[in-house]
Design a protein around this nucleic acid. Structure first.
Lengths: 168, 168
DNA sequence: CGAATATGCTTCGAACTTGAAGCATGCCAC
DNA sequence: GTGGCATGCTTCAAGTTCGAAGCATATTCG
């Protein structure tokens, strides 16, 4: 409790703003290219990529949603779109009737393969071309540690407030 | 052109994913608190914060939009909401009839002051509590450099593609 | 077993976002 | 000075997002 309301110093503020701005710009750039190259949004690409990496190309809806940091209802919506384009299939899980198993199709894998080079290229140009090997190593390890820290902290819901009408 | 399609190595991929995941998680957490504390979305807070920092608390719509990396139409929408809550005012620019000058009101400043401590607290807990002083310095300087690099590169629009119906 | 609770996904309504189109004002060249 | 392009904002339609509520299947515990 030693720091409850102490302000962030200038260095911290700068790092925070830089982080948010960099990620926003990067996401916009990547999104643009994915759309041009394969008519995919960033979220859709993330879903497909994650499935492509998964064993057998299969994942449950919930795990997928957690993986991409996305709402469940949002995922249902996007899964519907991807299924319509035959990039994935949805089948009830054999062991748990409630679960839905999402699977990448060959078409889906093909599309990922098609857009991946361009995607990577954008990331490289924007993010890595300005970094030395040393910086890269630091950035990766520092962010990796932060990620672990965040995953551990459960800020999820935990809000015993009376249901406010959500005006804004 | 030496690297047009070379894949990213594992280290780069890791840093990229960590960056995106950290920023997403952080943004969600911050958004949640802002909403609980002051009924503000992250975007709305950004707008108010930027105005609060600007000389005289005034900015033109376009500059504001560029500052928060946001679409113009989106900004018009949010400005409407904020104006309704008397957090900002919109007045035509005296020197250029086309421009609109946005100004934070005292109420707006008050609200920012009210939510700021909580905001900062979330950022600190999630982002900085896991970092040593040394890491922080590196993160800040590295991201700062990346940001400069990105701002320089003009990926903006520049898409002479035929207007596709934007299917997905 | 059977009720109570938890878990997994979808549906629903409302809010937010975006690019394109629309309008107005400014700027430039002729 | 005036026709043509540029700039700044708003409106519009379509798509996306989220949380809450709804449903169905699992699990737990009496």
């Amino acid at each position: 409790m030693s720091h409850e309301t102490a302000p962030l110093d200038a260095e911290q503020l700068g790092a925070y703003f830089a982080l948010m701005e960099v990620s926003t710009l990067l996401q916009h750039a990547v999104d643009e290219h994915l759309r041009a190259d394969g008519d995919l949004s960033y979220v859709q690409f993330q879903i497909l990529a994650r499935l492509t990496d998964a064993p057998d190309g299969k994942l449950r809806m919930t795990d997928l949603a957690d993986g991409v940091v996305y709402s469940r209802s949002g995922l249902t919506y996007q899964a519907g779109l991807l299924e319509k384009r035959a990039l994935i299939t949805r089948t009830p899980a054999p062991d748990d009737e409630r679960s839905v198993i999402v699977t990448v199709t060959d078409t889906g894998r093909g599309l990922v393969a098609q857009v991946l080079p361009g995607h990577i290229d954008v990331v490289r140009r924007l993010l890595f071309d300005s970094l030395h090997k040393r910086d890269l190593a630091t950035l990766g390890s520092v962010l990796g540690r932060v990620r672990e820290h965040m995953r551990a902290a459960p800020p999820r819901s935990a809000k015993p407030r009376a249901a406010r009408p959500r005006t804004a």
